[in-house]
Design a protein around this nucleic acid. Structure first.
Length: 375
RNA sequence: GGGUAGGUGGUCGAGUGGUUAAUGGCACCAGACUGUAAAUCUGGCCGCGAGAGCGUACGAUGGUUCGAAUCCAUCCCUACCCA
């Protein structure tokens, strides 16, 4: 029995979006879902209690690379695993370090065997092979663990993307072979292939043949125009098995999340809501509110009149602007709570609209209120 | 009353005869951020102008000089010390 299983509840008759449940060793996840990112065993500025009670997050992400460097996966294991270490008893997903192959591109060398990183902390050398990544992710003990991949930049040549994708596929096989905890950790494969349809197709086919309990789309939402993103998303999602979770990596703006659900994606994660919160911006049902801006100096209304979050129930834009401008920690915390709650609530709504076969209409209405121009 | 050190753009503070509308920091204003090297980064920040540019500006006034925030004279103001 796999640690991770997917139960399909309903398909939106008008869009094909999926409403489902992912069963994990630490409980169920209602999908589609947005997963807050807590790279270093913490969703920045949030306590796990706030994530549960105020944000109502069902699952969070953490990161192999960062936790391997500090405090070290052995230490986390000694603490009783990541759940216990950080006092979070709901599901956790660990990313594999594949994104760091992309984001730390000046600090690493890729070979067939794996990737050599120069630590961004102290310049020390570290080698990540698929086998090593499995060892680390198993020590961390997340419910869902990701196979080691390379997230290719945009744009990239066909030739490079092809050989990278093929290597990621070989690495996925090595991860699967090295994986020893399939009874309590579900290993997901990551579809690569850049912005080339035939490569995406090949990647999906080869990974599906390996029979992972779930699949992710990686390597999109890496700075390409929205049009390119949507094209690749809509091409790739239907290639993924229907009876397993489908995870789109690195997506977190409201429009991308809705588009992902429409494409039949079940899970997304992103640093965006917490990052822009720290930088003074809120996502609201009426579009972005840059709370730092002078126009809110005397605005004694909540960030979002339609929001039920702790921040909106208790604080005004004028106060939050003051906190952000004076660099008070509370400003960052209040905005983080709001943004995360905004997205979890958005996904609550998306699930309801799917059940009502109405996600397309909701998308249009949401775009209009948010101020997005359609596609 | 005497002495010493000073007065620079919102502020602190460089500059001490030309390439200076004047380095930096802060404050202020705006933008970016999408599997977190990010409580970060980028841009703007005298006025007018889309721009080339024009006008005004380094306490005040006058002077030296081809040219002054920078040199000189007088005055005003500030801080500290002595009486």
């Amino acid at each position: 029995m796999s640690a991770i299983t997917y139960e399909l509840l309903h398909i939106d008759k008008n869009s094909g979006a999926r409403r489902g449940v992912v069963h994990t060793p630490h409980g169920d996840i209602q999908t589609p879902i947005f997963m807050p990112v807590g790279t270093q065993a913490t969703v920045k500025a949030m306590t796990p209690e706030e994530l549960k009670e105020e944000v109502q997050a069902q699952i969070i992400l953490s990161n192999t690379y960062h936790l391997y460097l500090r405090p070290g996966h052995e230490l986390v294991k000694e603490a009783g695993g990541l759940h216990k270490f950080m006092n979070w008893d709901r599901p956790i997903l660990t990313d594999c370090g594949g994104f760091q192959v992309f984001s730390l591109s000046d600090l690493r060398k890729i070979k067939e065997e794996g990737v050599e990183f120069t630590s961004h902390l102290d310049g020390s050398k570290h080698f990540f092979s698929p086998e090593r990544v499995m060892e680390i992710e198993e020590a961390l003990g997340a419910d869902i663990i990701m196979a080691f991949d390379e997230c290719v930049k945009y744009p990239e040549t066909y030739e490079y993307t092809k050989q990278s994708m093929e290597r990621t596929t070989r690495w996925a096989k090595r991860c699967k072979d090295a994986h020893t905890t399939a009874d309590r950790q579900g290993l997901f494969g990551i579809i690569q292939g850049g912005f080339y349809e035939d490569l995406r197709e090949q990647s999906a086919k080869d990974l599906i043949a390996m029979d992972f309990p779930g699949y992710a789309i990686g390597g999109i939402s890496v700075g390409e125009p929205k049009e390119e993103f949507l094209k690749m998303l809509k091409f790739t999602a239907p290639l993924m098995p229907e009876n397993k979770p489908r995870y789109l990596m690195g997506v977190g703006s409201p429009d991308y999340l809705i588009e992902a659900a429409l494409a039949g994606i079940d899970m997304c994660d992103c640093v965006l809501p917490t990052r822009i919160a720290r930088h003074g911006t809120a996502m609201t049902s009426h579009g972005k509110v840059v709370a730092r801006n002078a126009c809110y100096e005397r605005d004694f209304t909540p960030l979002d009149s339609e929001c039920d979050c702790y921040t909106c129930r208790n604080y005004t834009k004028a106060y939050i602007r003051h906190l952000i401008n004076t660099k008070e920690i509370l400003g960052v915390r209040l905005l983080s709570i709001h943004n995360l709650r905004f997205l979890t609530k958005l996904m609550d709504r998306v699930r309801i609209e799917i059940e009502n076969d109405n996600l397309l209409n909701f998308r249009d209405e949401f775009y209009k209120n948010y101020g997005y121009t359609k596609e």
